[in-house]
Structure formats: C-alpha cells, structure tokens
Amino acid sequence: MSNSQEIRTGRHCVFNMHVHLVFVAKYRRDVFSKEILLTMQEVFRRVCIDFEAELVEFDGEHDHVYLLVNYPPKVAISSLVNSLKGASSRILRKKHPEIRNKLWGNALWSPSYFASSCGGVPIDIMKKYIKYESH
C-alpha cells in the first residue's frame, strides 16, 4: 500500500480504516532513545504486516509512542495492540539490553493504551499531528 487514502478490498468487503494508537511506558519512565524508537518502528511495521495492516506513521518521545495504522475490518484492535506491545517488548529487551536498567518491575509498557478511530479526519492531518505534536 503506497497511499494511505487508498480504498482497500477484502474477500467480502471494501474498506479504508485507520486507528490512532498511543502507548505509554510503564510509570512514564524515561526509556526510549532515538535508536530504540527506530528499532521499535521496524518491529511495529513487521507486526502490522502480519496483521495485513500498514504502519502509516510513527513517532515517539522518551516515555510514549504514537502510531497511525491502516487495518482491515477482520482485525481486532485489542489483538493488534497486544501483538505490537508484546513483540516490541521482547525484541527491544533482546536488541537493547540496557533498557532493562530503566524499567520498573521488568515491565516496558503500561497495560493501558489510547485508541481512536480516524474517521472524518483527513489522514494527512493525522499524520502531521503525529509527526509534529510529539515534539
């Protein structure tokens, strides 16, 4: 998918669905460096592919991340979130062992998350928000 506004088709449906997600580090700890955020972006991109979804935009700060995901209707957002958080936590610990020194109780992510559908908002506006609001 090259165009996030592109109408997608499934076996029995036509769709264009986006979700804005925000994940926060447990206890808002100062955990994420630029290098860790780059690794995380690649992990999130691969997990999205496994769900036949697309990571349209990603950015983050030292204690939280923003994602904009284009996903098919067969995907439950909670399942996608669980996979994104689980895979990123596992891979970040392996690739960046220094992250463990910044964690509290060995948990990377807060168990909660923010999810918002992006219906009615032009995707370009949402992409700009994620790219520039996080700074």
Rank of each mutant, 00 (worst) to 15 (best):
R90Y: 15
V81A: 07
K95S: 14
R90P: 10
L92T: 15
A87N: 11
A87S: 14
S88E: 09
V81W: 03
N101T: 02
K102H: 15
P97L: 03
A87K: 14
N82M: 10
N82G: 06
S89L: 06
I99Y: 06
A76T: 06
L80H: 02
K85G: 02
R100I: 09
R93I: 04
E98T: 05
K102G: 07
H96Q: 11
I77E: 04
V81M: 10
I91S: 01
R100M: 12
G86V: 11
H96L: 01
R93H: 13
S79V: 00
S79E: 14
L84V: 05
A76N: 13
S79G: 12
S88Y: 06
E98Q: 12
S78L: 04
R100K: 13
K94T: 12
E98P: 03
V75M: 10
R93F: 12
S79P: 01
N82L: 07
K102P: 05
A87W: 09
S88F: 09
S78M: 02
L80R: 03
S89D: 08
A87H: 14
K85W: 05
S88G: 12
N101D: 12
S79K: 12
W104A: 04
I77M: 00
I99W: 12
L103P: 08
S83H: 13
L92W: 08
S88P: 14
I91A: 02
I91L: 12
S83K: 13
R93T: 08
L103W: 08
I99T: 08
R90I: 11
K102R: 15
V81E: 05
S89G: 15
V81K: 01
P97K: 01
K95W: 11
L103G: 01
I99M: 11
G86D: 03
N101S: 09
P97S: 03
V81G: 09
S89E: 12
I77G: 00
V81F: 03
L84S: 05
I99L: 08
W104G: 03
S79H: 13
E98F: 01
S78A: 15
R90S: 15
S89P: 11
R93A: 07
R93Q: 13
L92I: 15
S89H: 11
P97N: 03
L92C: 14
S88Q: 11
N101P: 00
P97A: 01
N82H: 11
K95R: 15
S88C: 10
V75K: 08
A87C: 13
K85I: 06
S83Q: 14
N82T: 09
I77P: 00
I99G: 02
K85F: 05
R100Y: 03
W104K: 05
V81R: 00
V81C: 08
I91H: 06
S79Y: 07
H96D: 12
H96T: 07
S83C: 12
K94H: 15
L84C: 09
S89A: 15
H96G: 10
I91T: 14
L84I: 09
S83V: 01
G86M: 07
L84R: 08
S88I: 07
I91M: 09
K95G: 08
P97I: 01
S78Q: 13
L80S: 03
